[in-house]
Every structure is written in structure tokens, then in C-alpha cells.
Design a binder for these strands. Structure first.
Length: 670
RNA sequence: GCGCCCAUAGCUCAGCUGGAUAGAGCAUCGGCCUUCUAAGCCGAGGGUCGCAGGUUCGAGUCCUGCUGGGCGCGCCA
């Protein structure tokens, strides 16, 4: 065991103790075999009378032992007592149909406080993930416009998950896939081009923008602006930036007549779609959008290990470290056809106007019988269109081939729930690639298995203001961006408050539950908005430690814990003991919300302790022994709450900022 | 039509690999600031865990069917 690096928590020690007891039981013939520590389930009973911790171990062992659980538990008691070499247990008993209730000794529960202080900022870290190499892809919002709250939820969840997985011993790389190829991007380029051409309309639009007008442009759009173009004001703004961009101007001068119709249509084939296109403008436009996205993410303290460009998969940009120019999309499509995983056929496809599409398309055969049932598609899907252009799906095939080729054990994609129909198809693709690679003699072919991919689907966010939906006109391009939301819930005097509030609220729901995000509620500083509850708890703990130091009674290293003897203190010690388990559970279940709820519970326990004993048992007193014990507990709690907040990417302030006017205590009327 | 997700207190939601008498916040009502932060604490009321079966020592949790809500089933991404 590498206990030098990873602290062994109290629950771990108790599991080991119980496992040791089963070894003795097996030697005595009481059990056919011993149980391992990881098999032992420990619960916090809801009722104090049921002890500090309880195990249902005897239920799971009873069957193989051929005994009833209660009798087995009775027989196990002396063995458990004997295994308690450290003296962690004060008492234990069999209860109900076969539970074993554990009552901890003072030495036992106080050791949880010691664990935290000794491990320092490593407390909570475990090896649960066993070094598994995980690629975590999230956000991957199209660089065709600003991020909205839905993107924000996926971003925050993905980022928190990365932090939690790392703490739990996974080796994580985070990645943003840039969809910078295809119809949407071409549409962006075309929309931008129109604003570029029309200086008058653009200036008028920007004036409206600067005056805070909504983005529906009373002054109108440039002539010829496509009906299905991107209608948001940000396009005009980007056009303005590009107009002033010397490098881009140079490129376009070289092409001569940047704004002429003649320059239009010099598209990369992958990027067209029968739609007019211009390489330089389109690339500049999505880059400008992506720069905004990167900034918005940075406001939420989210950064990626790698930004992966779809263009590089098409051989339009160098791919990866090798800087090789290679059309991986076309390669994958061709190889799949060689093994009958794809085939060419005249389809019955229609374009947006309902016209039948001409030409033979290439279909991925996701319906093949040898595709495992959960991954099998109901229909073969087009990867190369009749005119040879690849679909989004084709690029995604190449992307996931690339991901696994980089040696990851496990892929996690965080997607919007509206993409759920896509998931099994993608797993089917990975299965097909595995089969393909086996036939090609790839020794690592078994890596390409459908179950290496895990998709976390994020449900919708409903944006509300005071309980009423915030109107979002998709057609008008009028919508509230993620940045708007962060700005709106940022309180005066604390630049981090918006980020903290947005992150925490997003992390108080499981991914698969829809989320109501009420701007009014999130801006409020009450328990409606639990981030302040937790941060207040942390600030209160910090202030106690600061006060103790100021009074010349600072917490000393290796403090005596014998002053801790209240039931509330025992409860808090048990809360501390749970933390590493909660982190591991949140990692394993990909559920950051477990950590958010833990922090709320921990703070509830602390606030209660603080308030109940503010008159009869204050932390700082003239009694050195109790003061040191309680300061140790306070320091341990502060450390755990700060660590937990850190894993959610939320700041842990030493003191709370002044309340803004409107939220200050009700002034006496008069 | 087929597929996926959801359904727990008036509202918004937790409930860890099935465990003992199902929890929290908000809202409602009643208390608590002379002393480490009242952004807090203490208390009260509030439930057929959508419905019906099944699995077992035990089901909010697992299985089947049904009802109600969301989403998906493109040569879009």
C-alpha cells in the first residue's frame, strides 16, 4: 500500500478491520471464504441508537455460509472485537435481522480529525481510478455563436468531473472538439461576409448594439442576407473586427476583390454544401467566435488540455503532434468500405427544399448483425454524401478513431441530451473500427470496443427570471448568453461571485435531470442559493482560526484532540471521515452533485454545532485543551470544505464580501 | 410507430453497489443576535415515492406492463 502518499481514512480502516474478522471467520470454518475490504459496505445509520456506522456484511455472507444473517452476526462479534487492534470500537451489537452496529471509541472518531490534518491538501485523494487514462471531451459547442446556458452546464459539469476524476486517481485529459467544417460554419462565413460588404448597415447595427438595443436590428440586415443566416448582432461585431484585421485584409487583397461576388465560391469542398463560401472569411469568423468562447470559459475558470480541430481530420490543417496533413475522414471511410462496414448506394435523401439528391452516397452499415445489440443501429447512416462531401458523422468516426489511437483506456463525452439518439451509433462505429483493425492485424485492436465510450447526457436548462421563462427568440438571434448570465449574477464587490454561483447551481443537479436556472434566485444570497451557505461556512471557520491566532491561542501542530467530546463533535468527525469516499463515489458515478450535497450537509452540521454551542461551548476559551481540540476540528473542516469547493471549481473565501445594498439586512422602517 | 430519459412534500430537488421509522432547501407558522460572521440556528405542519403486478429476509432503488411529461429517429451538427 502506498499509504505514504494516500491517507487511509477511518472508513477504510474499519473496512479492513471487518475484512480481517472475516479472515478469522474463514479459518474457523464459519465462512467458506474471507471478504475483502472493498466488499464491506459501511453505512451511516439514520438513527443515533444504531451506532456511528453499521454494516450489512452478514447479509451478503449469510447465504454462502449457510446461516441466517442474525446468527452469523452474533458469531462474528467476538472476531470483530479481536480484529480491533487499534481500539477504534467502543461497543458493537447485532441489531434487527443482522446488522452489525459499530459504536466508535473516542480514539476512533477523533482519529478522523487527525487524518485530515496529517494528510493536508491530499486528504480526499484516493487511488480509486487506478491510473485509468481517460479522455474527457466536453462543451465542443459549434464556433458559430456565443455559448448559451446549456453549453455552460455541460462545461461546468465536464470541468468539475475532470477535477474530481483526477482527485480519485484517474489520469484525465480534457478536450474541446471544434466543429469548424460543414454547413453551419459555411453559413457563419456567409453571414459574416454580408456584414463585411455593407459598411452602412454594419455601422448602424453596431450603434444599436452599443446603445444596448436588442439584437433584432430595426435598421435591418444587409441586402441579400440569407434567410437562414446567423442573425445575432455578434456577427456584425465580428465583421467589424475582421474589417480592421490587417492580416486578413492582406489575405483577401491577395485574392483580389475581397468583397466582389467573384471571390465568393472559392470554397474548400468539405466546407461548401452548395452554399457560397470563402475560405479566409469563414476561417476568420469561426476563429473569432472560438476566441470568445475561450474567454467565456475562462470566466468560469475552465481551460482545456487540447483544442481539437475538425479541419485537421479532413487534411485541411496539420493533425496532432506529428503535424502531418492527412485526410483521416476519407481514410476511415475507405477502410470501412473494404471490410463491408460501409457501402455505396443510391439513396433516397432529400435536401432542405425536399428535392431528391442525386449521386451515390456511402452508408455506414451500423445495422450489421455482428454489432452487439446495444450498439446496433436501426438504419444505415450516410457518411459520404452523393457529391462526395463527408457528413458530421464521418468526421466523428475519424475523431474517435484518433482518440483511441492515442492510447486512452476510456472515453467520456459530455453531450446535450438531444444527441442521445447518436450515442449507440457512435459505439457501433467504434465496434466496427475494432473489427476492421483486427482484420488489419492491429495488435491493439481490442481497444476499439463500443464500451470504451461513455456518454454523459446533459438535460436542458430552463432559464427563468423570477419564476417566469426568459424569452429566447432563436429566429431573431435574440437570446441570453452564458456570459450575460454570469454577469447578471455577479454581485458588486466580488468578481468571483458570478462564476461561483453559476458553477455551484449547475452542480446541484444530476446531469440527467432538467434544471431550472432562475436568475433572480441565483443572484439572491440565501439558502435558495446554496453556494453562499457553503462559502459562508468556510468563511466562518476561517474567521474562528484567525480570531484564535489574534488572541495568541493559535492551533498548534499535533494538537491534543482529547478536548473533543461533544456528540456534535463526534458527528463532525464522522462527516470528515466520509469525504474521501464521497469524492471516490462522485468520480465513479460521474456525479459531481454528490460532492455539492456533501458540502451542504457538512456545512449544515457545522453551522448547527456553532450555533447550538455559541453560549456553552465556544471554540476559543480559556481552557487550552478544549480550545486546541476544537481548533483542530475547525481547521480540519475548513480544509475539507475548501478541498471540496476546489473540486467543484468554486472559490473558498476567507471572508464573505459585504452584502450589496439591496440584500443588506432590512433597514428599520421610519 | 420505434428508441432513450424522467416521475419522491405545495414548489425545486437529494436519496451512495437493494437495508432499519424516506430527507434538504424554498414557501407557511412559532422562537433565537451582550460574547468566535444572524448569508446563521432551533422547532412545527406537510408523503399511497405516478399506477398495477413481480423478484426476496427486505424495494423509492431491480424486472414487466400501463399512464403522464421531455427528447430523438436528416445526404443537419
Amino acid at each position: 500500500m502506498s499509504s505514504a502518499v494516500f491517507a487511509v481514512s477511518l472508513p477504510q480502516r474499519l473496512r479492513q478491520l471487518l475484512a480481517t474478522a472475516t479472515v478469522a471467520a474463514a479459518e474457523q470454518g464459519l465462512l467458506p471464504r474471507a471478504a475483502s475490504a472493498s466488499e464491506v459496505a459501511l453505512d451511516r445509520p439514520k438513527q443515533a441508537a444504531h451506532g456511528d456506522l453499521a454494516t450489512n456484511l452478514c447479509f451478503s455472507l449469510a447465504k454462502s455460509a449457510g446461516k441466517n444473517p442474525r446468527a452469523l452476526a452474533e458469531a462474528m462479534l467476538p472476531l470483530i472485537r479481536a480484529a480491533d487492534s487499534e481500539g477504534l470500537l467502543a461497543n458493537l451489537e447485532v441489531a434487527g435481522p443482522g446488522f452489525v452496529n459499530l459504536h466508535l471509541s473516542a480514539l476512533g472518531w477523533r482519529s478522523a480529525v487527525r487524518d485530515v490534518l496529517q494528510a493536508g491538501n491530499r486528504y480526499g485523494q484516493t487511488q480509486a481510478g487506478q491510473g485509468e487514462k481517460v479522455l474527457l471531451e466536453f462543451v465542443s459547442a459549434n464556433p458559430t455563436g456565443p455559448m448559451h446556458v446549456g453549453h455552460g452546464r455541460g462545461a461546468v459539469l465536464g470541468d468539475a468531473l475532470a477535477r474530481i476524476l483526477r482527485a480519485a486517481g484517474y489520469v484525465v485529459s480534457t478536450e474541446y472538439y471544434i466543429n469548424n467544417v460543414g454547413n453551419q460554419v459555411a453559413k457563419l462565413g456567409e453571414s459574416t461576409w454580408h456584414w463585411l460588404r455593407d459598411d452602412g448597415k454594419r455601422q448602424a447595427a453596431l450603434e444599436q448594439w452599443n446603445q444596448g438595443e436588442p439584437v433584432a436590428f430595426p435598421a435591418g440586415f444587409p441586402e441579400g442576407f440569407p434567410e437562414d443566416g446567423y442573425r445575432g448582432a455578434y456577427i456584425a461585431q465580428i465583421a467589424q473586427e475582421l474589417r480592421q484585421d490587417a492580416e486578413l485584409a492582406g489575405v483577401c487583397r491577395a485574392q483580389s476583390a475581397w468583397f466582389s461576388d467573384a471571390s465568393w465560391g472559392q470554397a474548400e469542398p468539405q466546407n461548401s454544401s452548395g452554399r457560397a463560401d470563402n475560405r479566409a472569411i469563414t476561417v476568420a469568423a469561426w476563429r473569432a467566435n472560438l476566441a470568445r468562447i475561450e474567454q467565456d470559459l475562462a470566466v468560469l475558470d475552465i481551460r482545456f488540455d487540447r483544442w481539437f480541430s475538425e479541419r485537421s481530420l479532413h487534411g485541411l490543417d496539420p493533425i496532432g503532434e506529428s503535424q502531418e496533413m492527412r485526410n483521416a475522414v476519407a481514410d476511415c471511410a475507405r477502410r470501412l468500405q473494404q471490410r463491408d462496414w460501409a457501402y455505396e448506394e443510391e439513396g433516397a435523401g432529400q435536401d432542405d427544399d425536399g428535392n431528391t439528391l442525386q449521386g451515390k452516397a456511402v452508408f455506414f452499415r451500423g445495422t450489421r448483425e455482428d454489432v452487439p445489440k446495444p450498439f446496433r443501429d436501426t438504419k444505415d447512416r450516410v457518411i459520404l454524401r452523393g457529391d462526395g462531401r463527408p457528413t458530421y458523422f464521418a468526421a466523428d468516426i475519424a475523431y474517435h478513431d484518433d482518440k483511441l489511437g492515442r492510447g486512452f483506456d476510456h472515453l467520456i463525452n459530455v453531450l446535450g441530451a438531444d444527441h442521445h439518439g447518436y450515442v449507440s451509433r457512435l459505439k457501433g462505429v467504434i465496434h466496427a473500427l475494432g473489427d476492421l483493425r483486427r482484420s488489419e492485424g492491429d495488435p491493439k485492436a481490442d481497444r476499439w470496443s463500443g464500451d470504451r465510450l461513455e456518454v454523459i447526457l446533459i438535460q436542458m436548462v430552463a432559464l427563468l427570471r423570477d419564476g417566469k421563462p426568459v424569452p429566447m427568440g432563436k429566429r431573431s438571434g435574440e437570446f441570453v448568453t452564458l456570459r450575460d448570465v454570469v454577469d447578471e449574477v455577479t454581485t458588486a464587490g466580488n468578481p468571483h461571485s458570478g462564476r461561483d454561483a453559476v458553477r455551484f447551481v449547475f452542480l446541484t443537479r444530476k446531469a440527467d435531470a432538467q434544471l431550472d436556472f432562475d436568475l433572480e434566485v441565483v443572484r439572491r444570497s440565501s439558502m435558495d442559493n446554496p453556494v453562499y451557505y457553503v462559502q459562508y461556512g468556510h468563511a466562518r471557520l476561517a474567521s474562528i482560526l484567525a480570531r484564535a491566532a489574534a488572541e495568541g491561542k493559535p492551533l498548534r501542530d499535533g494538537a491534543d484532540l482529547s478536548g473533543l467530546e461533544l456528540d456534535d463533535e463526534r458527528e463532525l468527525a464522522l462527516v470528515l471521515a466520509e469525504f474521501p469516499e464521497v469524492v471516490a463515489r462522485a468520480a465513479k458515478g460521474r456525479e459531481p452533485h454528490q460532492l455539492a450535497y456533501y458540502l451542504m450537509d457538512a456545512c449544515r452540521a457545522f453551522h448547527g454545532y456553532y450555533s447550538r454551542h455559541k453560549h456553552d461551548a465556544r471554540v476559543i476559551s480559556d481552557d487550552d485543551r478544549t480550545t486546541q481540540g476544537r481548533l483542530a476540528l475547525v481547521a480540519a473542516l475548513k480544509q475539507v470544505i475548501a478541498a471540496g469547493l476546489g473540486l467543484l471549481g468554486v472559490s473558498a473565501p476567507e471572508r464573505m464580501a459585504e452584502l450589496p445594498e439591496e440584500q443588506a439586512e432590512e433597514p428599520a422602517n421610519g
